[in-house]
């Protein structure tokens, strides 16, 4: 590489830089600046536009903001299609994502001004509320994508998910062997712990990490209560503790994954619902013109 022409070096330097640049900071915040300018123009227009009888979606300025907002919503939702094709360069997916985030934020201003702060129990406000929920979940998504991967990586302790499952299986096999000398009640507890589905938990348990019906913990409590009287019991108790530790790691991983993924379960379906509500909003306005 020492003999490579300088321009080539510069090119690779640039490419590497761009590879490691966050989509938030893309092109020195180009889209942040653009969407801030858009918000500023929208606010100034709102203040100075001469509309009758008062600002709302039904004035000429309201129609302009509404058209702009609807166009933005449709374009923003196209990221779902666009992201399936990764391309580099000027219209790279990173540029698109950066624009998606910042233009999406500017929609808060554009759409709120479009409402003229007139909200009610109707399909128009439904569209607005859905849009705000989509944007809020998007903000959450950006925040957790920036913060949680580090925690996720820390929790792995250099293990893959497969290894975590495998480790648990290894412990389980040993437990199965070690529990052979145990009496009925204790064996049942161990069997119950081994049979329990590691991943069979719902959203709330995953998010809170509150595994109240954990049978491994229950079995461990039993052994701790009786105290370790002989090597066999001692061994099973030790293995149960290992199992518990391994479960904790898996559950922390599940919790972080849940925190990381939950927003998409709001962002994506609500976006589609928003497109439906937006259609109803626009059609109804012209139907009852």
């Amino acid at each position: 590489m020492a003999s490579a022409p300088e321009s080539d070096l510069a090119f690779h330097e640039k490419r590497r830089d761009s590879d490691h640049e966050s989509f938030l900071a893309h092109k020195r915040l180009r889209w942040l600046k653009l969407s801030s300018a858009l918000c500023l123009v929208a606010i100034l227009g709102y203040v100075f536009a001469d509309v009758e009888p008062r600002p709302n979606g039904g004035t000429w300025y309201g129609y302009i903001l509404g058209t702009l907002g609807a166009g933005l919503i449709v374009w923003l939702s196209l990221l779902g299609i666009r992201k399936r094709a990764m391309t580099p360069g000027r219209w790279s997916l990173k540029a698109w994502t950066s624009a998606h985030v910042y233009l999406g934020l500017s929609l808060i201003v554009v759409a709120t001004l479009h409402t003229g702060f007139q909200l009610g129990w109707n399909v128009h406000t439904l569209a607005y509320v859905l849009m705000m929920l989509v944007i809020l979940s998007g903000i959450y998504g950006v925040v957790v994508y920036a913060t949680l991967p580090q925690a996720l990586s820390d929790n792995r302790r250099e293990m893959t998910k497969g290894q975590m499952v495998e480790a648990l299986a290894a412990i389980d096999r040993q437990l199965d062997q070690a529990a052979q000398p145990l009496a009925r009640e204790e064996s049942d507890r161990v069997i119950a712990a081994l049979k329990q589905d590691t991943f069979g938990y719902g959203l709330v348990v995953r998010l809170t990490g509150n595994y109240r019906d954990c049978r491994t913990a229950a079995a461990l409590a039993l052994f701790d209560r009786h105290g370790a009287s002989d090597p066999a019991h001692e061994r099973v108790a030790a293995l149960l503790r290992k199992r518990q530790a391994q479960l904790d790691q898996i559950r922390r991983h599940m919790r972080l994954r849940a925190l990381l993924e939950i927003w998409l379960y709001i962002h994506v379906p609500l976006t589609v619902a928003l497109l439906a509500a937006l259609t109803a909003h626009i059609v109804s306005v012209f139907y009852y013109w």
């Binding site: 998910k161 991943f199 938990y201 959203l203 995953r206 898996i250 994954r257 849940a258 993924e261 379960y265």
Partner: peptide, 8 residues
């Protein structure tokens, strides 16, 4: 099972 897909 690690991801939310199974729970929702």
């Amino acid at each position: 099972g690690f991801s939310l897909g199974g729970a929702l």
